[in-house]
Simulated assay, not measured.
Amino acid sequence: MFTQRGDRFWTYEEPLRFFGVELGRIMSVMKLSSGGLFVQSPAELTPELKRALDDLGEVRFVAATSKLHGHLYMEQYRAAYPDVELLAAPGLAARRTDLQFDHLLGDTPDPRWGTDIDQAAIVGHRWLTEIAFFHRPSRTLILGDVGFHIGERSPLKTRLVARTLRIYERISPPIELRLTITNEATFRRSIRDVLAWDFDRVVPGHGEIVDSGGKRAVLDGYDWLLE
């Protein structure tokens, strides 16, 4: 069920329709030096997916990227793995009052995963703060809604909508998110912090994974901000 994309790094893709448009979603799984698994943007924990995860190792941490992205199904992981720790992006705890979170994510990674994974808070938007992750062993950047990447393999309707939202064959947020940035200088600084990482691969929040040349792709997708 998983695609291994680098050293101790796997992805799992599943469909996701939003207002009738197929966007897809991607779960990332990283095996830590300690042996445990760090899961970002968890997918629905079907019996088949649980068996595949258990074959990789023990699920220790489950993280959402923002209060909007990657928090679905976290309750299933809490039920299936009693010792798991749920990690909340800024604003998520207030939205998911049904869950007890163990850690609030910010700019600084916890030492328990910090050897393998770095993180940065992307701030400056009116109502959304997102956590970007960098998996060092596989040189992979993992994004959420600040990094759509809709390509030619998507359905025609999705491609047409993506052109309108300015996310077709670009790693970039949709135009409505761009237009609601309230502090462009702060947002730009956050993206430059991400670009300082030594990544080659990019896993977007929705769309197609860029397996190589990812830094150039982010620079090109954010030319509207970085010029």
Rank of each mutant, 00 (worst) to 15 (best):
M1F: 08
F2L: 00
T3W: 04
R17G: 00
F18L: 04
G24Y: 05
R25Q: 15
M27L: 05
V29P: 05
V29Y: 06
L37V: 08
F38S: 04
A43H: 05
A43I: 01
T46W: 05
E48K: 15
L49C: 02
R51S: 08
A52C: 05
D55F: 03
A63M: 07
A64G: 15
S66Y: 02
S66H: 04
H69S: 11
R78V: 00
A79S: 15
A89P: 03
P90Q: 10
L92P: 07
A94F: 07
T97Y: 10
T97W: 14
H103L: 05
G106Q: 06
D107K: 07
T108P: 06
D110G: 05
D110S: 14
W113H: 09
I117E: 07
D118N: 12
Q119L: 15
I122T: 03
R126V: 06
T129C: 11
E130P: 08
E130F: 10
I131F: 08
F134P: 04
F134D: 04
S138Y: 10
R139P: 00
R139T: 11
T140W: 00
L141T: 03
I142D: 02
G144T: 01
G147Q: 13
H149K: 03
G151D: 12
P155H: 04
R159C: 06
L160T: 10
V161C: 13
A162M: 10
R163P: 03
T164I: 07
I167L: 08
R170E: 14
I171R: 11
I171P: 06
R178A: 09
T186R: 15
F187P: 01
V194L: 10
A196N: 02
V203Q: 05
V203T: 01
H206F: 07
S212C: 11
G213A: 13
G213L: 11
V218W: 06
L219V: 15
D223I: 11
W224Y: 13
W224M: 00
